[in-house]
Amino acid sequence: MSSFLMKLPPHQHGKYETKYTFFILSAAMLPAILFSIFYYGYRMLFAYILTMGVCSFTEWVYESIKYKKDYLERFLEFKGSVTAALIVMTLPPILPYYVYVVAALIASIIAKQLFGGFGRNVYNPAITGRIAVLVGYSSLMSTFYLPTSNILENGLFNITTVPIDAISMATTLTAAKETVASGGTLPILMTDTWLPSFLGFIPGAAGEVSALALLIGGALILITRIGAWRIPFACLTTFLVLATVFWYFNQGYVLDPITQVLSGGIILGSFFMATDFVTSPLYSKGKIIFGIGCGALAIMIRIFSSYPEGIGFSILLMNSLVPLIDRYTKPRSFGG
């Protein structure tokens, strides 16, 4: 008599698996990654490969220890690659390589594995890694560059160097902060920065500069329903509304809302980092509360603190509220 496979119902499974969601997430990040490589040169590609290697390796070591098995196939899944890519994208473009390694190790060991691995981490690993190096290497972190030539003119294997291929320059947000601090006033509408900010030809963090590339990826995330639309929607709406209010009452001292959205990491943060399943609320109501919190904190840190950018801090702060939000936003059952 042949033996039959016994399983509990349901006897079939849908097509989505963790692997595929990560694949689509990576595909969504691709436009911004490609833009950063195109804009800042071949050096960025090294940075991505190095960080991905570090993250995947620690992930593999961790799983091998945890499950007491040699998970070579798991290594090939490159589980930490999304985190790794996000770390490079949120850091300034031309950095010593060891900074990437430090950020990757902190992200993957401290923020993820010490909490119990994928699915159990409280804080977004990429942001934790980024903020650790932001605090540790603050002078490196505040230096941004505006390339004067791109990979097409430079040739593929020419590494971007300062000051030949790029000039050191403050980001729009930092520049505005400095202007106001030194007693100057800002133009009411900075219309001349809108188009370059949208396309990405401004100084800034490697993957954050091009709003267009990020929006293409964001659209992919929303269409495939990998990320919940509620979080970026609530986050960006709150951010815009508050930015408009603050700008309206402090004209000349606060950047206009459109420049605010297009510069800094708000688009990257709201589409790719706040939507991380593991560290965002489970229920739809909670997702909206989470998004509103992220957006509101981000604009308030930008305006009222000494940091020019606050999306990373705001997402981390909201991450720690997730268990509380989940507790009070449980949906009502049908007929219950």
């Binding site: 969601t21 994928f118 159990r120 949906p331």
Partner: peptide
């Protein structure tokens, strides 16, 4: 079975 990714599809 892997750890819950908290994606919320089941909900």
């Amino acid at each position: 079975e892997e750890a819950c990714a908290r994606c919320g599809r089941c909900i």
